[in-house]
Design a protein around this nucleic acid. Sequence first.
DNA 1: ATTTAATGAGACGCTATTGTATCATAAAGT
DNA 2: ACTTTATGATACAATAGCGTCTCATTAAAT
Lengths: 190, 190
Amino acid sequence: MTDRRIKRSNRALLDASFQVLLHNPHASLSEIANQAGVGRATLYRHFPTRENLLAAIAIESLEIVEQATAKRLRCELRETSAIEQLVSALLPLADRFHFLQMMWTDIELDAEVCALYEQQMAALERWITAGQRNGVLSEQLQPQWIVAMLDSMLYSASWLISTHALSPKEAEQQLLIGLLNGISGHKPTG
Amino acid sequence: MTDRRIKRSNRALLDASFQVLLHNPHASLSEIANQAGVGRATLYRHFPTRENLLAAIAIESLEIVEQATAKRLRCELRETSAIEQLVSALLPLADRFHFLQMMWTDIELDAEVCALYEQQMAALERWITAGQRNGVLSEQLQPQWIVAMLDSMLYSASWLISTHALSPKEAEQQLLIGLLNGISGHKPTG
DNA sequence: ATTTAATGAGACGCTATTGTATCATAAAGT
DNA sequence: ACTTTATGATACAATAGCGTCTCATTAAAT
């Protein structure tokens, strides 16, 4: 019933377009098709319009993130190690965050993208609020600000990794210290 | 000697293009010229190419940032309040950071842009390194990571302000707490 | 008042990209 | 083996944006 070629082309296109657009947001659909090893016509058969393609990548990205976080977010946040684990799980996906942020202007009009995004944001905010109740997270900060910090620091980490300023290991370490303790010198040790 | 009209058109173009591109990165030069209340031909007389225009905005943005920070960065970082003052000075310029980040792919090829950028980054890193020596900033973190955190959190703040999720005042407060102390609950108070 | 030159309006050619349509081929399903 | 259909190649029309040029107008400089 379902032709294997469809799935194969679809994968090749989603993978290639993600990689190509990540490094050149202005890339034409021809370039993308070439990089995917697929005819331009085939690209249009799978994704009728450019917006459509971008939305598809965004949705896949959001689903990947969801898959990596869903289990962790389901159980209540009780100790700091859970945050460390979340960051560890999310950091390898920083490219996806990068893409979503970079293309936000183009994809924010898509209903499914928005729905997924808001859904995940809501889940994350609930998790964080629980963490605040449990004393793991500061109650001085608003949940949405903590979400924003997490998001933007993942982006920073991926940036520094991609420019080889930091190794992935270093980046993760720095991110956790900075996120959890801030940048202040250790005055609490007084 | 110098015709006032030149300066006036130039200002109108720089201001309008910054605002327009901030909200629609794909805006055409026609739209920009319209918004500036200037003919399209005039735009081309001032900025021969699109890249040229983008670079000009970037350079102006970097100069604005430099003007706002130079004095503060010149005197050594000795106490936390200096950081708070830097953030206060920088937060109103978050739109400029936003622009630079959003257009980075398009402007990173310009020599002057790169020079200004690296120069400011270097100054900031020196300031931070001094702050670490003085015990104001954590020595566990690499200067470039602290820079990245500052940058990305300014971006986050401007985002939340622009979406009306946080008021400017709230955003500044949350930013400072998060940046200096991190998101952890107060375990040091034990 | 006269000269200078920046501007606005518009026409023009050019290129790149988009999206559609066609048709032979070859791979997959039965 | 036979049928179905996804694909690749190609041609095509349509659009949009870019960059150049011209010329009358009008503001500014002297």
